[in-house]
Structure formats: C-alpha cells, structure tokens
C-alpha cells in the first residue's frame, strides 16, 4: 500500500470530481428553489415562436407536419427532441392536422410512440391518433435520408421540424423540404451542421437553445429551474476560465533568469521563463504524481 495512490483522489484529481458535483448540485438546488417561485424569466427564442406559425400554415394547406428527432440513439438529445415534438403534436392535434414522426432508432421509436399516443389521450382526441404516423424508417443513416426525402416529396409536408442530433443528412432533409416550399424549424446539437440549417431553413435554434426549448415551451418549474441552474453552471465555468487566466498571467509575468545558448554558431544570452508544467493551473488541471510531473 505504500506507493499506492488513487487516480481520482491523489494530487488534486479530486478537484474535477468536486467541480462536476458542484455543477450538478447547483442545478438540483435551483430546480428545488424554482418549484416555489413562479414567472421566472426566459429570454425570447425566435425559432420556438415560429412553431405555431408553421403548424398554422400546414393547417391552412391541409398538409401534414413532419418531425424528425435526429438520428442518434436513445439519449438526452432524442428525449429532448421528443419533448419538443410533444408540444408540436399537441398543437397539431387540436387543429386536426396529420403528423409524420420519422425515427431512425427502434428504442427512440418506442418512446416516440408512447409520448405521441399520450399527447392525443391527454387532449381527449384519441380518435385522431394513428399509430402509423410514428414511423421507424430505417436504422441506416442514408437509407433513412432516402426514405424521409421520399416522404417529404410524396406527401408534400407543409411544415417540417428537424430537431436533435443531425449529421450529414441534415442538408438532404432541409433542401428537399425547401424545394417543396415547406416552412422549416431546425436545430442540431452537432455544431458542425448548424450552418447548413442556417442556409436552408427558416428558423434555427443554435447550440443549447435546443436544451432550453422544452422549458421555454412548457414553463414547467422543474425545467425552468434546471435552465437557471444551467446558467449558473455556465457562469461558474466562465469564472474558472477568467480566474485561471489571471493566475496564469500573474505567474508567467516576468522572466525567471537568463541563460546562454548556442544559436546558429553564435552564443546568445536570453531570458528564461516559467515552464507551463510548473504553473499552478497545470497542477490542478493535469493532476499527476510528482515523478511524472518532473519529466
């Protein structure tokens, strides 16, 4: 036991665990606080205000609304997308608008089927619910893209919602829907796809506006509280970055001495500076036993 150390507790490694625990605690605390408070502020997210407008257009035209919750497996992104689609479906159901929900993962399909039937049941519109409106198209990315494009073109969907983890197929969907003049609201948690949605869609949610969406639409205390907690977590990250930069700046200011070295045959005297591996922040963020640090 003498030279044994635990990688996540020795040499400041516990700081990272403590930090993530603190972030989670912040979120939990603000959820519990917000349960008691009402009318918390959320800034305007224009992409979400467009949902009703898009569904309204589809109703006027008598064409279906298409929703795709990304192509990832069953995780928070798909679940969040389905939460947003529950809202979309509720509105569409009230207007007796047909919906198409295309999914690429069987587990997501199961959840989608459940959520959508639940929406119709709670609205008391069970007769309008068609289990075939939630479809498993394919679990292969481009077969899925081909299938959804076919649905868009044949059924002439008037409003399309692409929300979730989208990859290359994003532009296939967006351009196909654009070619038939559908109104599009889109969002991808994959930053790399966002510019293409910006180019081809009417409204785009950027970055974690996607995670804010369900709180924005439902104003449910748990979700709004979580959103407040997330903001505080981001503030914490900003503070750590700023503080770390300041400490690093102070530590790296000024030289530690001078040294004489040979440069292209000439001997030059130049100042020396502190090595990055000797910085306080490096010790906190790259914890390692002393013998490795000295290498």
């Amino acid at each position: 036991m003498d030279n044994l150390y635990y990688t996540n507790y020795s040499y400041l490694a516990w700081v990272q665990i403590a930090f993530v625990m603190a972030l989670m605690a912040t979120i939990l605390v603000s959820i519990s606080i917000s349960k008691r408070r009402k009318n918390l502020y959320i800034r305007r997210i224009s992409g979400l205000n467009a949902i009703d407008e898009a569904i309204g257009r589809a109703t006027e035209m008598g064409k279906p609304v298409l929703m795709v919750p990304g192509i990832g497996g069953l995780d928070a992104i798909s679940v969040q997308a389905l939460n947003i689609f529950a809202y979309v479906t509720r509105t569409a159901a009230r207007f007796a608008n047909p919906i198409r929900l295309c999914v690429m993962d069987a587990a997501v399909y199961t959840v989608a089927q459940e959520i959508i039937s639940d929406v119709y049941r709670k609205e008391g519109l069970q007769e309008r619910y068609d289990p075939d409106s939630v479809r498993f198209v394919s679990d292969r990315q481009f077969a899925f893209a081909a299938g959804v494009s076919g649905i868009i073109l044949r059924e002439q969907t008037a409003a399309t919602f692409f929300m979730g983890a989208f990859f290359a197929e994003s532009l296939i969907f967006a351009e196909t829907a654009n070619s038939i003049g559908a109104i599009q609201v889109a969002s991808s948690t994959q930053t790399t796809q966002t510019p293409f949605f910006i180019a081809a869609c009417d409204y785009v949610l950027i970055g974690d506006e996607f995670y804010a969406a369900s709180a924005y639409l439902s104003r449910e205390p748990v979700l709004v509280g979580s959103l407040v907690g997330q903001d505080f977590a981001k503030l914490a990250i900003i503070s750590v970055v700023v503080l770390g930069s300041l400490v690093t700046t102070v530590q790296r200011r000024g030289s530690t001495g001078t040294e004489t070295v040979e440069v292209q045959g000439q001997s030059v005297t130049r100042p020396t500076f502190i090595k990055p591996s000797e910085l306080v922040m490096d010790k906190i963020f790259n914890p390692r036993p002393p013998e490795e640090a000295s290498k």
Binding site: V79, D208, Y211, S226, G229
Partner: peptide
C-alpha cells in the same frame, strides 16, 4: 465552438441528471 459546446455539455449534464433522478414530469418520465 468551445463556447457553444460548453453550453451543450451543461445541457446534457442537466438532462442526464433529470433523467437519472426522474425529475421531469410530462414527456418521457411522466
């Protein structure tokens, strides 16, 4: 991109927490 990902990362962390503890009503864990 890092700034966007910090936000998305915190979003996923919060969502993971809500799912793990079944805090959400409505939607999936109703």
């Amino acid at each position: 991109i890092r700034a966007v990902n910090f936000g998305v990362g915190i979003g996923a962390l919060a969502m993971g927490l809500r799912i793990w503890l079944s805090l959400e009503r409505g939607g999936v864990s109703a």
